[in-house]
Design a protein around this nucleic acid. Sequence first.
RNA 1: GCUGAAGUGGUGGAAUUGGUAGACACGUUGGACUUAAAAUCCAAUGUCCAUUAGGACGUACGGGUUCAAGUCCCGUCUUCAGUACCA
Length: 1023
Amino acid sequence: MCCNTFKFVPYFKENSTMRYDFNQIEKKWQDYWAKNETFKASNTSEKPKYYVLDMFPYPSGAGLHVGHPLGYIASDIYARYKRHKGFNVLHPQGYDSFGLPAEQYAIQTGQHPAVTTQTNIKTYRRQLDQIGFSFDWSREVRTSNPEYYKWTQWIFIQLFESWYNNDSNKAEDIKTLVKLFSLEGNTTVNAACDDNIESFTTEDWNGYSSEKQQEVLLKYRLTYLAETEVNWCPELGTVLANDEIVNGVSERGGYPVVRKKMTQWSMRISAYAERLLQGLDTIDWTDALKETQRNWIGKSVGATVSFNVNGHDENIDVFTTRPDTIFGVNFMTLAPEHELVSQLTTEAQKAEVEAYILKTAKRSERERMADVKTISGVFTGAYAEHPFSKEPVQIWIGDYVLASYGTGAVMAVPCGDQRDYDFANHFGIEIPNIFEGVDISEEAYGSKDNVKIANSDFLNGMNCKKASKRAIYELEKIGQGEGKTNYRLRDAVFSRQRYWGEPFPVYYVNGMPQMIAKAHLPIVLPEVEKYLPTEEGEPPLGRADVWAWDTESNAVVSNDKINNTTIHPLELNTMPGWAGSSWYFFRYMEDAMRDDTFASEDALNYWENVDLYIGGSEHATGHLLYSRFWVKLLKDRGFVNVEEPFKKLINQGMILGTSAFVYVLHLPFGFNFRDGKSKSTEEDKLAYSSFFEGNIYIPKTIYDNRKSLSKEEKGKLTSFIDELKDEFHSKNPNHVLVDQFDVFENFESNCNPIHVNVKFVNSSDELIIEDFKSSYGNNDAKILIENENYTVGREVEKMSKSKLNVVNPDDIVADYGADSLRLYEMFLGPLEQYKPWNTAGITGVHNFLKKLWKLYIGENGLNINAAEPTKDNLKTLHKTIKKVQEDIENFSFNTSVSTFMIAINELTAQKCTSKEILEPLLILMSPYAPHIAEELWSQLGNSDSISKASFPEFDASYLVESSKEYPISFNGKTRFTIELSLDLSKDDIEAAVLANEKTIAQLDGRSPKKVIVVPGKIVNIVG
RNA sequence: GCUGAAGUGGUGGAAUUGGUAGACACGUUGGACUUAAAAUCCAAUGUCCAUUAGGACGUACGGGUUCAAGUCCCGUCUUCAGUACCA
């Protein structure tokens, strides 16, 4: 190798003006679209509307990699297709620009998050623009802009001013609740509210101080302040939502999370549990996604049962899905944290119970979840009374019962629940059987099917369904229970102890939260010196000097003016990441960016909701659930007209990176120096370390066989090491290296794979050694080369910086063009699927575009004329129209790229020059490869953008065939084909096939038992 | 454990209602052009047997239904994703 300026040039640039100069063409048309506002949507149109939306990106500092645009390309194709089909399309884009990374960067560098966010957005915009998306940028949204978050704050106020009426099954103005209280007290009100609400009468209410009334109302509002046990992440200095925690550690950063009590804003999403569940049936989402949301909502139908405790006034309430098994109850278990535990425990058991509580409290939630095998618990010494049999029921505590679900207590039915069964077995509690003819000596019988209840008084002989109904009826009769539906869905904590988020429009008067009137919004994020929590543990906004609300001037004023009469402190928390993303799709509808409404009524009525939403499945339980919640609230309060935000939703799969590995052999000071002296000197060590600055790399083959190296491989390694020694010696004549130990001892642990940047690997998986060595830290690498090459290992992994497998779309666009990138991303495979990126494959679609170009533009210019199309030409065109249209409507974009290739291959072979064929073909391709389509379209003499052209009409008559190559099979195995007219009847076909000489030869004298003829399809001869 | 999705050549992936498995590409091999390389073009390419003609096998595995199964049914295994002492 002598050439050290080698660079991979994917395509030889001819010196002709007729070549496909994608860089020039793409720039030209991107400028044209921007200048002419080609994709600007109008809020008034005769055409039907269609709203195509991408989940907007968080502008991270790393910029886009090739995986990011996948969904955008798909939605862009669909948007462009819909325009060709005569729809008025809204296809906007924006940025989810509040968030943790910018804040953490700010903490590290002191750089204001607004500044880094601005920079990152610039990069994103440049990267997006060069891919040629048909976004209407005039409607761009940034969640961190005050003009935008003004409305996020406003929606928060609407939630505060709302309560959920379970009778009308919708949210209503809090004023209606106040009115109800003053007329009827709260006993007749059926509202979603906190659990621990005392009842009061009209007189009580009217006698309450205004502060007390505020306090009560807070328990009914759809967003409320509550002392909640939250997931506190000390490392991040903030609270995390359940869906921001993965396997007990924070989703971002992987830091530990602990439980902590804090006063926080919460969203009463649980009020909407049933509607969120029901709504799933009305929308066109994948089953997988709907199922995930159903699980998250976690509806279970059953009953609450109230047990009297012997010798106490207290009752213990439990929730069960199996009221039919009530007679199987012979003990109950409380969570260690249950509030009644200390009251109930007898003197005798006290020490043991307290020790147990202490022990479980020490274990983190995570440990408790991880360890499901160990059975532990302790008897409280107390007994409850069975509601029907009046038998005593032992009360235990055990950590298999979770305080956070249901009532934190269970009625144990050891014969019907495996956990209760195991618990009873472990502690020697009796296991009564209440199932007819079922053996429970080995395990509990958990199934509801094919079983009748026994030993259960009035339930005997009934099946589960009937028995459940009857049990609930009887419980209600004696006032010790009722039918109840439980949901797993918890209210969502809405406060974050962060800087870079929406400030709350809230100030506090004597500790009671007050909303700032709409007219004074937005409340703009204050400046702070540092983005860390304060020394007192307050959120970063605690560092702001100007962060108090003056109720007279209605302005944010300096903190030192706080007098608690007219000037009050403002809220120090900010809103979570999902606040801004829960309603942004409405803001895009507004074309004038009006300041007096989040979107005008006309705009909301016209665009309604998102017709097609494309994004990643990681938002299944976060963004997609919260958005649905907020939309329902806005609907209930009359601000929008739709119940669901996203009619159809597609999750694009992830594009994975193909990581490359090289294999390092560690020689941990494995050499002695022998230069006549007995000890090595500092000089020796320096010589050694400067020689071995780089790693030593061994071939993959040797690494793969590291457990049992062959003689040959050992020899190779030995001579490589000897070479290194010689080289060392020649560079350091005063020094000689000798082995300190046998390299082959513990060889396995002395070598391991490390990631190598995919930039240094060619399409044959060979390391480009020059490039690799010229990179930082590798110029002194010692590489054992086999057959003149070093082959890297490959593995498919998530694309990430740390895995050195990131492919930047900028490079792809520069080398192959945006149209190639768009086509290739689609060509890789089905949209929803996870698939690895392999840059080498892009030559396939790139060559296709060059072929396409050549079909239209010959050496002497345009190759197209008014020639009458041939039958074959028309057939190719129309079968392409049909297939592409079907594919786009089924979101099967990969197959339409193949269809284009087939069409161009066929038309090239047909030497087609007919404008009548080649012009409509461009429209078919323009959603996929818009730049080349625009260029050729204009070269054909069109003056308007191709995006304004209507989609070609499919005409089936061009595809009618007169004959068919029938596959002839014998016993289901195809042997040969015969061409027959499609006019033939079944009998004619049979006769023709049987008369054929190949058939006769195949039958070899046997007579067929049966002949199956499917006209137009196949002939099968049995016998 | 539960829920959902998926398993097809060396690779990415095609295959309407069951009807010629492997479309379209990548890669590989051979050839043409070239001083050479790149680019371009042509040919071959599921596996095995056979000089040819042709044959056998083949869609994770084991069964079944059918004239015919990648596709339908039963069972098993594997991978991925979500979720979990949820009472």
